[in-house]
């Protein structure tokens, strides 16, 4: 390489930088650490957080690490080193356990730290101000309730079934599976728990298309950890001559995928798990803490009011959970479903 080459490269870099927006400051900057907005759920989360920050008069900076905890750790160090005065941090670790060190470092900066999406590890309570986000145990439990409810209603005999879970080693997958299994203990029989290689339809289909025919005549239900996987499983079931909703009950439990499978009844029902509102509530919790100055012990589920988001004047608890309102599996139920003033369609189909 020679000197000449450096010039065009530098030019490219400069051009890229000039395009980056200057940060306006008013009430202060909130810095959010998230894995990567390549994942649409995280993209939604960032949108919600951005909206709430704007409303509260903060500027939000989202720092992405592309699903790499070591990278996120260094980003935290980098951020802390910048000496920038911030209004608070929002922390969504990629590897919950591995991120504890960074979490501690953030807490030592003195700014409030809100943990989101990944349920904090026991024993780390001193390192964060509050948790505001989804509850994966709850998600699994809600899914189980929807399934049990559907079993009761449809009159289909529910006994043996299978869980198609997130890739091995993904902690959200562990939590949802645990939440689900705890809730169905003694009621349903779990034949097998199969991890996929991804979170999306193609992976769900790959696994379901092999599991369903192999256990034909045995499977009466399937729990897949999100609706993307559930939709694919419904497709696989149909291709194997099983009518979803009649011969087999499928539940995903988090509306994150193609809603048509819910609307046409193929999936036994779903629950609104909104990335948008999760990001929104994380920023709201930070705003609440900054104005109220205190955190109440214990946990709370924010009310799942269909029409209005929770008020900024509500107290902030140590654990603030995103509600997972269940949605029935029909077009009408889906159309009617709303959470905090946004329709299920808006929140689930992004």
């Amino acid at each position: 390489m020679n000197y000449k080459m450096s010039l065009p490269i530098a030019a490219v870099l400069l051009a890229g930088l000039c395009a980056s927006p200057a940060l306006a400051e008013d009430k202060g900057v909130i810095v959010a650490f998230v894995p990567s907005s390549t994942n649409p759920y995280i993209g939604q989360w960032a949108k919600g957080a951005q909206a709430k920050a704007g409303e509260l008069g903060y500027t939000l900076k989202v720092i992405e690490n592309n699903f790499n905890q070591a990278e996120q750790d260094s980003q935290v160090q980098q951020q802390l080193a910048s000496g920038e005065k911030v209004a608070g941090y929002v922390w969504w670790p990629f590897e919950n356990a591995a991120g504890v060190g960074s979490l501690r470092a953030l807490s030592q900066s003195g700014a409030p730290v809100i943990v989101s999406n990944q349920y904090p590890i026991k024993g780390t309570e001193a390192y964060w101000t509050a948790y505001a986000g989804a509850n994966d145990f709850l998600s699994g439990k809600t899914a189980a309730e929807i399934l049990l409810d559907a079993c009761a209603k449809s009159g289909v005999k529910c006994d043996k079934g299978a869980i198609i879970r997130f890739p091995a080693g993904v902690s959200a997958g562990d939590d949802r599976a645990t939440g689900f299994q705890d809730a169905v203990k003694g009621k349903l029989d779990v034949l097998t728990v199969v991890p996929t290689a991804g979170f999306l339809e193609d992976e769900g289909y790959k696994v379901a298309a092999q599991i369903i025919p192999a256990n034909k005549g045995q499977l009466t239900w399937l729990y897949t950890e999100n609706d993307s996987l559930a939709g694919a499983a419904a497709q696989a079931a149909r291709e194997n001559g099983l009518v979803p909703g009649k011969d087999i009950l499928i539940v995903g439990g988090t509306c994150h995928g193609d809603s048509k499978h819910v609307k046409n009844g193929e999936i036994a029902g779903t629950a609104i798990q909104s990335g948008y509102w999760e990001g929104w509530m994380a920023v709201q919790a930070l705003g609440k803490f900054n104005t109220q100055g205190k955190v109440q012990d214990g946990e709370t589920y924010l009310a799942d009011n269909p029409d209005a988001p929770p008020a900024d004047s509500d107290p902030v608890f140590k654990y603030n959970f995103l509600p997972n309102p269940a949605v029935g599996n029909s077009q009408a139920a889906y159309d009617a479903a709303k959470m905090w003033g946004k329709s299920a369609d808006e929140l689930c189909n992004f």
Partner: peptide, 15 residues
């Protein structure tokens, strides 16, 4: 600014 503060450089090295 973190590119020239001591702590920032340390963070860069660590990364």
């Amino acid at each position: 600014p973190s590119y020239y503060s001591p702590a920032g450089v340390a963070a860069l090295l660590d990364s």
